[in-house]
Nucleic acid binder design. Structure first.
Lengths: 127, 127, 127, 127
DNA sequence: GTGGTCTAGACCACG
DNA sequence: GTGGTCTAGACCACA
């Protein structure tokens, strides 16, 4: 379910956090739904359990996840409101601004930038 | 000229490096053109001169900048080739992929994502 | 009779243990008196029966409760001595020290702290 | 400056968090003031640096502390408002409720409870 | 079975 | 010098 890139600049625990946040906001993880256990995620991606645990704990602190004692983590009930359209646009806003600034600094034609992004959004599901 | 966000996740010296790289590739910094001095950048943005110096030095190591004794740094002559169309698309490619994945995870409609990006690219110069 | 807060930092089984200990020491649970059954407590508070059982078992190990075959748990006869004034003050001592340190670190005026505590002790029975 | 009890039920990193929160709210740590470094706290109390780091990081996440890159942690500027009287009483409220309930369950006389607390608040500074 | 905590030690990034 | 990240491994607490 998660997509980890061990060598990326973004730390692993933060990659997990951001993906979970988006999957919850996007509705692919419903309120109350259980997440894969710390140990499972760790073994699947060959990373340290503490790294996963750190991500989950911080998401708990943010109110995105809830701890069910002895039964793992689940999407928090009150995280449901996080799926509002407004909130979802907030999560992608910074990314759009970064790309816009890069395009401007590179003096790339807006039309072609949009074209490339369109193709990436359509085809990427496979990878 | 530069846009620094202290407190951002991306380290300051890297913000400088990436912006300079893009401005050179985009042609807004021409070969031979002088860059603002380390001290000037540092004082304008209230950051440590060592941070600016580190960014400049690494760009020199990459062949993007050249050191002119007693006269500061300038865009390297051989950096001209860095402005090829292919190279410029390489610099923005990762950003586009990131945004595409975020949109997919958030289940946001592609059309509206493109629309928002279009508006950002047109209007942003002001900020 | 019991007051359970799932989700609190203090584990549930320990919440049960401490409350029973205090009710016994305070005389609200008399020697020989029966406690609500594991199943009853579990269903009333929607918690796992094993959690209740664990609390009762440990209290039995401490000599506070006794197991009556086929009839559940009751306050141990020899637990009577636990109600001495000295013992009761021991049970509240740590709590008082914690509050005193918090008040000091928050630089709150002692008089008002006492005032608020007085009101809480008088009115709380309702909740 | 901090008071760590290694054997306590409350985890060490949480002891640190709560004390810092209270010292900030109480004004003993002013906005902008630097905290002792992770390594310093760790060596003084003979605990692992990661334990201290965890506390600091979570306080940063809560907005109580700010990271000054390469220069350690400091009390966040926006944490100043955290020192309002209302906020300080919020921090001690739960502790007062706990004590009040314990006193009631133990059937201890309110006057004497208050008396003991008064003495603790006056004399404790020494330890 | 679940997550939490702590340790020890290594390496990196930043200024 | 500062904090951050990750690993490996141990033990505990909870249900």
């Amino acid at each position: 379910m998660l997509h980890i890139q061990p060598g990326a600049a973004e730390p692993i625990y933060r990659q997990i956090m951001e993906q979970v946040r988006r999957l919850v906001a996007g509705g692919q993880l419903q309120a109350g739904q259980e997440l894969p256990s710390v140990r499972e995620v760790a073994s699947v991606h060959a990373i340290n359990p503490m790294t996963v645990s750190k991500a989950y704990s911080q998401l708990e602190g943010e109110g995105v996840l809830e701890r069910r004692r002895g039964k793992g983590m689940a999407v928090a009930a009150r995280a449901a409101g996080k799926g509002s359209a407004g909130h979802r646009w907030e999560l992608i806003g910074p990314g759009l601004q970064v790309v816009a600034r890069q395009a401007r600094e590179l003096e790339l034609p807006a039309d072609e930038v949009l074209d490339r992004l369109r193709r990436l959004m359509k085809s990427e599901p496979g990878e």
